[in-house]
Design a protein around this nucleic acid. Structure first.
Lengths: 197, 197
DNA sequence: TAAGCAGGCTAACAGCCGTTAGGAAGCACG
DNA sequence: CGTGCTTCCTAACGGCTGTTAGCCTGCTTA
């Protein structure tokens, strides 16, 4: 029983450094030579660890997608709980993923369009499925009389939009802890959704 | 008394086409040769009209900033009106700018970081000022007892986040007219802010 | 008719791009 | 010792980058 060390620690380090650069400069504007320099390497050396530049982006985007789905699944595991509770937990799970790695989150949110097909299409399908999961949860809440909104799809988009702006301003050293942020966001968003709020 | 034609129509056309490409592929991933091809030109010919690639981005970003400020100023012109009314009008003005040119809006929101200094810093200062204007309006509403929120800055960020996600999904040919979108967004956001909503 | 200018062309510039080939250290393990 | 693996190097590849210089055409206006 031990904390499993990464199979290829250097590769993981490349991913982390690349993610930070992709976030700061954008995928297209980040060169392999910049990435290598940031790691204290020559550009060619990177290719002992990775297959291509896009492969890094692919791993970041799809890895984070998996985290989001896992968080949502855990939050809605007890389907008999009040929908408002499930939604609050889903919001908190989403915020937890966003704050635990805000650089990767920013890349996930903005740089996916530099994926080439078919990865790009697969990514968008995943994103749609995730949005649909929130939409259906809200719809379930409306049907149960726990939530109210004139437009379920609209409400889901607005909710995710509010959450996804977080990586743009969140700083780990800021005065608000992730849990506190998640709580306030859920409060503010739900008070606009909750019936007789 | 006539509708003033652009001083240099070709230049305006370059800006529009570039904006669409910047939005679709990103600034860094859009080449001058791609842009020229989209306009039926050779790359070198562009430089009869513009000084540089970044000049286009500069014009788009700062032009839109001006539109946002003008909209906000018009919405809050009557400072004696209820703050909730002013805020609703400011939201509607913001949405009107976003929907009237969603490509330029997307560039404004995501591609500004490819501006080099000092333009980048100037842009961020403008954006901060705009956010502050919303923050102060909300604070005024809280002081007047018209609005409620535990955290004014938080509320302003969430509000703008919800609005700024719009260019990501808005389609001019969609079933919702811009005014209807603005109305629903304002409704959903205010019902979460308004006291005893 | 002459002058000027807007708008376009071709060709080329220096430099950066992602990626590959081939080799050489250092280390672990039989 | 020898094998194999990880990690890094140098050098180079073809191709694309933003931008410039110089030239030509055709319209507008005096």
């Amino acid at each position: 029983m031990s904390t499993t060390a990464p199979l290829r620690p250097r590769k993981a380090q490349i991913d982390r450094t690349a993610t930070a650069l992709f976030r700061a400069r954008g995928f297209a504007a980040t060169s392999m030579r910049e990435l290598a320099t940031a790691l204290g390497l020559e550009a060619g050396s990177l290719y002992s660890h990775i297959k291509s530049k896009e492969e890094i982006l692919h791993r970041v985007c799809f890895g984070l997608a998996e985290s989001f789905f896992a968080g949502f699944a855990a939050a809605t595991l007890d389907a008999t709980a009040p929908v408002a509770t499930q939604l609050r937990q889903a919001i908190e799970a989403h915020v937890r993923v966003l704050t635990s790695d805000s650089a990767a989150s920013a890349v996930f949110l903005h740089e996916w369009r530099h994926l080439s097909e078919p990865a790009r299409g697969e990514f968008l399908a995943l994103r749609d499925r995730y949005e649909a999961a929130f939409r259906e949860l809200i719809a379930k809440g409306v049907a149960a009389g726990e939530l109210h909104t004139p437009d379920t799809a609209f409400a889901a988009l607005t909710l995710l939009a509010s959450l996804n702006w977080l990586p743009a301003w969140y700083r780990p050293e800021g005065k608000l802890a992730p849990d506190e942020i998640a709580h306030r966001l859920a409060e503010q968003l739900l008070s606009g959704l909750r019936h007789d709020g």
